[in-house]
Amino acid sequence: MNKVKTIIRKEWAEVFRNRLVIFTVAFLPLLMMAIPLGILYSTRGVSSLNGITPGTELPTQVTQSLCTAGTGSPACLQVFLVSEFMMLFMIIPVTIPVTIAAYSIVGEKTTRSLEPLLATPITTIELLAGKALAAVLPAILATYGAFGLFVAGSWIISGSGLLLSALLDPRWLIAIFIVGPLLAIMAVTFALMVSSRVNEPRVAEQISMVIILPVLVGLFGQVFGFFILNKQIILVVAVIMLVLDALLGYLAVGLFQREQILTRWK
């Protein structure tokens, strides 16, 4: 465990000297928080849902499941709008760690620091765990921080108890506190796998970014009304993510071939 901590501290000491990384870690959560808050702010003056027909403009599923406490109220519209952007908070734990992790192994190849590191008695699991946690932890903290600010901002802007209770219901909490970290682990594990197989940092980053696609599918799927993320769906996603993370972790350790990494790198 001490070696894992050493790797985490080393990674942070290196990574957070990079302004681009600091910008990504700080800016993205702020942006993802600002978008729904801006929408809430712009809709705060809506006094009724005149002209909006449940089942057409507002999906019936929304009015039935999200607005049970006050169907037809303006707060319901706000709950609906904000729910549309829950997936934005899923983009944070995917994007931030990929930026860090994609460079992690291939960066050490380019600076030739990987061989001395591999010559130490560190195991592959310790090395990958250290590098993964160094990328995952800032992403999780940024996600939690952004969500905390979003909840506070929503309450200040809307003053709506309905909206606040909607944001703190199990659906949101599971998404933010369980699915978010699981997504971050998936993104990082995938990025580490890519990083250990390629020889060019930019290629590593570009390939690793593919992992954001499922989240974007979720975001646009909900925005275009193909589905509404309810508690059941999110729980199913969490279970799938858990299995996927375990599988990817196993693959990442298996694919981390010290010999290939050292001898194929020129």
Binding site: T6, A13, R17, T111, R112, S113, P116
Partner: peptide
């Protein structure tokens, strides 16, 4: 190793501390 492969952004002392821990 054939090339020193130090962590260029980190201090000399911290470079050694990392490896001492490992």
């Amino acid at each position: 190793t054939e090339t020193p492969g130090m962590y260029d952004n980190l201090s000399a002392q911290y470079n050694l501390q990392i490896f001492a821990e490992l």
